[in-house]
C-alpha cells in the first residue's frame, strides 16, 4: 500500500468515525428517534445475527472439509478469517438494510452512509486491482491473506448495490401509497 493509499484509507476511516459521532450527537441533541430500535427492527437484527453466525460456522466447516478431502493446503488461515468475517458482515448488513433494521446511529443518516460506502468500495476496488496485478492474492495455488482488499471490495460493493435496490423499491412503494 502506497503512502497516498494509506492516507486515503485513514481519511475514510476518520470520515466514518465523524459520521457516527455526528449522528449520535444529533440524536441526543434533537431527540431524533434513532437512538433505539423498535420491536420489528430488533427482530430483524436478531435474525440477521442468527444468519451471519450460522453462515460463519458453515463456511468454516466447509473450508476444513474441502482441505481435508483434497488433502492439500489451498487457503491460508488469515484468508479464511478475512473471507469468513466479510461474508458474515455482508449477510448481516444486507439483511438489515433489506428489512429496514439499519444499524445505529445511521437510521437517519442514510445519504452520508451511502456516500461513504461507495467511497470505501471504490478505494478497496482500486487496492484489489493492484493486488491482482501484483499477483499476490494466489501464491502457488494457495489463497493468501492478501485477498483482504478483494473481499472488502466485494463486501462494500454488495452493500452499495443492496442499498440502492432497496431505495428504488422503497420509492416505488411510497409512490404507490
Amino acid at each position: 500500500m502506497s503512502d497516498y493509499s494509506t492516507g486515503f484509507f485513514v481519511g475514510l476511516l476518520f470520515a466514518w468515525i465523524v459520521i457516527f459521532i455526528n449522528a449520535a450527537y444529533r440524536s441526543r441533541k434533537h431527540g431524533e428517534r434513532n437512538d433505539d430500535y423498535d420491536e420489528r427492527q430488533m427482530l430483524v437484527r436478531y435474525r440477521a445475527y442468527q444468519y451471519c453466525f450460522f453462515l460463519m460456522i458453515v463456511f468454516l466447516a466447509c473450508t476444513c472439509l474441502v482441505e481435508s478431502v483434497l488433502d492439500k493446503h489451498i487457503i491460508d488461515t488469515d484468508a479464511v478469517a478475512i473471507i469468513g468475517i466479510c461474508l458474515s458482515v455482508g449477510v448481516h448488513v444486507c439483511y438489515c438494510i433489506w428489512n429496514e433494521g439499519y444499524f445505529l446511529p445511521l437510521n437517519n443518516n442514510r445519504k452520508s452512509f451511502f456516500i461513504l460506502t461507495v467511497a470505501t468500495a471504490i478505494l478497496f476496488i482500486s487496492f484489489s486491482i493492484q493486488s491482482v496485478q501484483q499477483g499476490t492474492i494466489i501464491v502457488d495455488g494457495v489463497l493468501t491473506g492478501n485477498c483482504m482488499e478483494l473481499a472488502c471490495a466485494v463486501l462494500f460493493t454488495t452493500v452499495c448495490i443492496v442499498f440502492l435496490i432497496k431505495r428504488i423499491v422503497d420509492k416505488k412503494e411510497d409512490e404507490q401509497q
Binding site: D38, E39, R40, Q41, E100, E173
Partner: peptide, 19 residues
C-alpha cells in the same frame, strides 16, 4: 407510537405481526 415508518408499513402490508 414511537416506531419506524417501515414498521407501520410492514403491519399494513401484513408482513409483520405486532406485539
Amino acid at each position: 407510537v414511537n416506531v419506524s415508518r417501515q414498521t407501520i408499513n410492514a403491519i399494513e402490508k401484513g408482513d409483520y405481526n405486532p406485539t
